[in-house]
Amino acid sequence: MAGILDSVNQRTQLVGQNRLELLMFRLVGKQRYGINVFKVKEVLQCPPLTALPKLNSVVRGVAHIRGQTISIIDLSRATKGPAITDLSKAFVIIAEYNRSVQGFLVGSVERIINMNWENIMPPPKGVGKLNYLTAVTEVENELVSILDVEKILDEISPFPTEVSSSIVDEAPESIHDKKILVADDSSVARNQVKRAVTSLGIEVDLCKDGKEALDLLKAKAKEGPINDLYSLVISDIEMPEMDGYTLTAAIRSDPALRDLKVILHTSLSGVFNQAMVDKVGANAFIAKFNPDELASAVRNSIEN
C-alpha cells in the first residue's frame, strides 16, 4: 500500500494529453471504481472521525488532516449503497473538486492504471438518470465505474447557480442573440453552466463529451461559417473518449474551426497546469463552479 500512496503523491502533478491515470478502489462488494489521480491529494487509512450535529447522513464525520478540517463522505452511502462499516480497515481518498477539499471514505484502495480517454466510455444507455456514473471502462475484463462526483457533492451541498443581478443587468443586448456550445460529461455541471449562461440571454447547445462536441462542430461548419453559429465553446477537461485539451487542440488544427474561442471549465483547480492550456490554445481557464465568474468570462469573451 505504501507504494500506491507514494505513487499518488508523485502523479498528481502530471497533466495528460487525452490520457488519465485512474486510482482504483472498492466500496462495499467486488465492484471496482476509479478516480482521476490528478484530483487526488493524498490517500490514507481512515483517521479518527469526529461526528458533528446536523451533518448530512452521507458525511460520516470530520477529520483533522495536515492542519485542515475535512468532511469525510461515505461514497457507498452517497451512491445509495450500504454504509462502509469497518472503519479500521477503510481508507480515505483526499481529493480536490470545485475549489474545495473533500475526503472520500472507501472500503479498499488498489492500484493506479494508465489509460487513454478513448478507452473511457459514457455510461451504457438504459442505466437511467438516477445513476451516479459519469463514465465506465474495462480493466482486466472487469467493468470499472467512474463516479459523477460533482453530482454527489451537489446532492450533499448544492452549489449556488444564480448569477448576481448586477452582472445580468449589465449584460448588453448585443449578446442576447448569441449561442455557445458546452461540453461536459456531468449532467449536473452541464445544467449549472446552462443556467448561468442563459441568464445573460445567450442560447446554449449541450454535448456530453469532447468527441460529441467536435463531431457537432465539424458538421455545422459544413453548413456555413462556424463563428456565425457559435460565439464560444466552454469545455470540461475530463471527459470520456476525448478530453478538453484534445478537443481544443483539434479545434485549433481545423481551418474551419480554429477561430472559435474556447474556455476550459474544470474541477481540476488544485493541479491545473497553465502551460498545458497555453499549449493547446485555449483562450481562458475557469475553475468550477462560480456562476458570477463564469458569466463574466462568457460576456467578456463574446464582447471582445
Rank of each mutant, 00 (worst) to 15 (best):
G107K: 02
G201I: 02
P160T: 04
L181M: 05
I302E: 07
D74E: 04
M239N: 02
S166R: 03
L130E: 13
S76P: 05
S108N: 14
E293Y: 05
I152S: 12
I73G: 08
E96H: 14
M24R: 14
G103D: 05
G107E: 10
A284L: 13
I70E: 00
P160C: 02
D292I: 00
L217M: 07
V59D: 14
N119D: 14
D259E: 15
T79A: 06
L87P: 04
R111F: 11
P225N: 09
S199P: 03
L44V: 11
S231D: 11
P48G: 12
S235M: 05
A135H: 02
A183H: 07
G128H: 01
F91Q: 12
A63G: 10
R11W: 15
K30A: 01
D236K: 01
G34C: 11
V144Q: 06
P158Y: 04
P291S: 01
V182N: 10
I251D: 05
V101K: 07
D254A: 11
R258Q: 15
A183W: 05
L232K: 10
F159T: 14
D205E: 12
A275G: 12
P47S: 08
L22K: 07
A171Q: 00
R299F: 07
F289D: 03
I286C: 04
M115V: 10
I113L: 06
V144L: 09
K179D: 04
E173M: 08
L22F: 07
V280E: 07
I65D: 07
N141W: 09
L247I: 06
T266Y: 11
L229G: 09
V144C: 01
V193T: 06
D148F: 00
L14I: 08
E241L: 15
R111W: 08
P48V: 03
V163W: 01
S296H: 07
A90L: 09
L14D: 13
T266W: 13
Q274D: 15
S165L: 10
K194E: 03
F25G: 03
G210R: 04
I175L: 12
N304L: 10
D74S: 04
L260K: 08
V271N: 15
